[in-house]
Amino acid sequence: MPLTFTLDPAVTPALRDGVLDLWTDVSNAGGAVGFVAPVDRERIRPELVKHLTAMAEGRHRLLVGHDEDGEVAATAFLAFNTHRLMTHWVWLYTVMVHPRHQGKGYGRDLMAAAADAARGFDGIEAVRLSCRGGLGLERFYASCGYKEVGRVPAAIRVAPGDDRDDITLLLPLV
């Protein structure tokens, strides 16, 4: 059964906790979403608060995918670029699908929904994202239409002796 996507859902305690649980579960399953396992909700909470604050200030938008049980199963944040020469594209951040839903095509559905959401923003011509190398994520994003436009070798230190590339990809919308 497909996910139901909502852009800018009401931020209720249930939604906040659902995103927090998703982020924790994805991180602990090895997902490249800003943390390295093991983490708990309290380690992730301050980062979620930053995203929620940016949403309240109109700088970020939240796309949420709910599964058939109404649980938060996928998320992505879209962040407007505030540099006056770069306001024609948005960043896509914290792209997550719950580990129990991996392999169902929900990641591709999330990426399509994020692109559709960005197309609805005035003046937006592209979506840009970055990902951690070493996991094959760039191949997944390429299969969703993104093109690699930059790579900084060994920019992300996952652990001592484990440095990964920071890969930037772009999806033109026009």
Rank of each mutant, 00 (worst) to 15 (best):
M1H: 12
F5E: 00
L7V: 12
P9K: 03
G18I: 04
D21C: 14
V26W: 02
N28Y: 07
V33D: 01
F35K: 06
F35G: 07
V36I: 13
R41F: 05
E42F: 02
P46K: 02
V49P: 00
V49K: 06
K50W: 03
T53L: 02
A54Y: 08
A56Y: 01
E57M: 10
D69N: 13
V72N: 10
F77A: 11
N81W: 07
M86Q: 15
W91E: 15
L92Q: 03
H101Y: 09
Q102A: 14
G103N: 14
Y106E: 13
D109K: 14
D109M: 15
A113R: 08
A114D: 08
F121H: 06
D122C: 02
L129M: 12
S130P: 00
A142T: 03
A142E: 12
C144I: 06
Y146P: 00
K147S: 15
E148N: 07
E148M: 13
G150H: 06
V152S: 06
A155F: 10
I156T: 06
R157P: 08
V158Y: 11
D165N: 15
I167S: 11
T168I: 13
L169R: 02
L169N: 03
L169Q: 11
L171R: 12
L171G: 06
P172D: 12
L173F: 06
